[in-house]
């Protein structure tokens, strides 16, 4: 469904974040991207929904050229791609309800929504999304009154409102403790399996990768150094991706 061809991103300062990266994603995959911080994972995910404009290369989704899209067309593509962030990126001073409704903005009349008017069925849909994630009792709380795990669930509910075909998750559990990490990833897995939503997710921990991923891509300095099944990642591969120094720290995660 998603095809990335010769993707390159050079930042204005001269930093090369991605170098000639190509891969394909099939419908229904749970693709995990691994790599050190600064290896280009976040840049890659943000190029897919064009929060960052790539320098060279082409990304297509179901035949539509994402890299060439502009204005309304780009927004139309974006609303089909949900995104989940490491720091949740909720509007802290707004209520949970408003935050979830924000996910629907791409579908709504821009003028009415700018005035703060949302149709009743959208509010109902938001309620259902929150109920699905088990936090329907927090509807009227302010976002910053919630715990980290709850905030990330609000982030997922916001994504659900988009009725996405693809979800990009940028280290969704890096700010959470391991128990919460599993619960968040289980929600993503549920979306992936039950709703047939394709997921591209960046992760750090090997146990999580082997538990949830259907396929893995490894990045190092913006270059693809690994592509295969999670079971194919062994100590050597891991060392290749994370570098020599990482070996000792990561080794425990591997065994």
């Amino acid at each position: 469904m998603l095809k990335v061809e010769h993707l390159t991103k050079v930042y204005p300062g001269g930093t090369v974040a991605l170098k000639d990266l190509s891969f394909e994603v099939e419908d229904g995959e749970f693709l995990v991207v691994i790599g050190l911080s600064g290896s280009g994972k976040s840049t890659l995910l943000r190029c897919i929904n064009r929060l960052i404009d790539p320098t060279e290369g082409k990304i297509t989704m179901d035949g539509a050229d994402i890299t060439a899209a502009k204005g309304a067309e780009l927004r139309h593509i974006r609303r089909q791609i949900g995104m989940i962030f490491q720091h949740f990126n909720l509007v802290k001073r707004s209520s949970v309800m408003t935050n979830v409704l924000n996910g629907r903005l791409g579908y709504l009349n821009p003028w009415l929504s700018t005035m703060g008017i949302f149709p009743a069925e959208e509010k109902k849909r938001a309620q259902q999304a929150l109920a699905r994630l088990g936090i329907e009792d927090k509807v009227h709380s302010r976002a910053d009154e919630l715990s980290g795990g709850q905030q990330q669930r609000v982030g997922i509910a916001r994504t659900l409102m988009q009725e996405p075909k693809l979800i990009l998750a940028d280290e969704p559990v890096a700010s959470l403790d391991p128990v919460l990490a599993h619960s968040i990833l289980q929600y993503l897995e549920q979306l992936n399996k039950d709703d047939k939503v394709t997921v591209i997710c960046s992760l750090h921990y090997l146990d999580l990768i082997q538990r949830y991923a259907t396929r893995v891509i490894g990045l190092k300095d913006g270059v693809k150094v690994f592509e295969g099944l999670p079971s194919e990642i062994n100590r050597v591969k891991f060392k290749e991706i994370y570098g020599e120094e990482a070996q000792d720290i990561r080794a425990t995660a591997l065994e």
Binding site: L51, R78, N89, L90, V91, L105, R158
Partner: peptide
């Protein structure tokens, strides 16, 4: 900047 990124990613326009 986080919320700006998040809301942009949902396909909202500039005004939204």
């Amino acid at each position: 900047e986080g919320p700006i990124e998040a809301v942009t990613a949902t396909g909202a326009n500039r005004l939204q």
